[in-house]
Amino acid sequence: MVLPKNRLLRGIYLMIQRYLRHNVGIQSAALAFYLLFMIFPFLIFISALLGLLQLDVAAILDALEDFMPTEVVSIVGMYLNYVGADPSPQLLLFGLFFSFYFPMRATNTLTRAVRTAYHLGPPRGAVRHVLKSLLYTVVLIVTIAVTLTLMTVGDRLLLYAVDNFHLPAFLAELWARLRFPVSAVAGYFALFFLYALAQDSRQPWRNIWPGTLAALAAWLALSWLYAYYVDNIAHYSLLYGSIGAVIVLLIWLYMSATVLIMGAELNGTIMSLRKDGRGDV
């Protein structure tokens, strides 16, 4: 089949072809499955930690409402408040264990999808692959912890520093304005690191950053649009009752998984277009 001569149309055609050929829909469903099971142990761990440290749950929920549907935030809030009301070290350890296990499974699923997008075979060396998965799981958890800190603890610490350590108020205001861009940068580097870590050898920077930036921007835009749709148009809770929040969560996770995988597919498409431009076979 003859590809379109226009570079943009050719890229769109290759992206659609890759989506179908690489079974992105099935891979996204598998990734969404593990993300779903990752959320609840992580919420147990976070809520137990919040209960032990007596941090502000309401501030976390307020931050999440900026880019998540209200139904999803309500589920998160329910777990945070329920488990945080009776914190215990045993519950904290339970959540910590499964907060590593299920993210590792999600990382493995996403790594396979990324390797497929780059036309790579099975990973070289089982031990090396496990170490990479464990390393990225730690990076993922640290990124989430940093983001939560920026969204919640940051304000409280800044106000405390202004009142007790004479921190200039303009610095506190600047931090409040920059916390969302800083969180976006943290998410960018976490995704960039995943795309790079899935490779067998070091890839040029230009083969990784376009899909990383596009995936992050698309995820933020899609999450905001879906949240607006759910809150103002769909009204899943009226149609499906109490199960509506679960449906919203599953759809949001599936869309998020698709965006993450398609970011790697975009990088693969750009690499193919470069080869076509050089006349490589």
Rank of each mutant, 00 (worst) to 15 (best):
A176H: 12
A214T: 06
R179S: 03
I208N: 10
H166K: 03
L140D: 00
T152V: 05
H166N: 13
W224P: 03
Y226P: 06
D155R: 15
R124G: 06
R206V: 02
W219P: 02
H129F: 12
M151F: 15
A214Q: 03
L238V: 13
R206M: 00
L222S: 03
N232Y: 15
N164A: 08
D200A: 10
A169T: 15
I247V: 08
W209H: 07
S183F: 13
I243T: 07
V138E: 01
G241T: 03
S242K: 14
A176Y: 07
I233M: 10
H119Q: 02
I141W: 01
T143R: 12
L171R: 03
A198R: 03
V185T: 08
G187K: 07
V138Y: 00
D155F: 06
L120H: 01
P204W: 02
A172V: 03
A227N: 15
S242H: 11
L249R: 01
D163V: 05
N207R: 06
G125S: 06
G211Q: 05
R124W: 03
L220F: 14
L191A: 13
I243S: 11
F165S: 11
S242Q: 11
R179N: 06
G154H: 00
T143Y: 08
D231Y: 15
G241I: 08
A190K: 12
A190W: 15
I243E: 08
W219I: 07
I247K: 05
I251M: 14
L157R: 00
V182Y: 08
V162P: 01
R206E: 09
W252P: 02
W219S: 10
W224G: 01
H166Y: 04
T152S: 04
G125K: 06
F180I: 02
N207F: 02
P122N: 08
A184C: 13
L239Q: 04
G121W: 02
L216C: 00
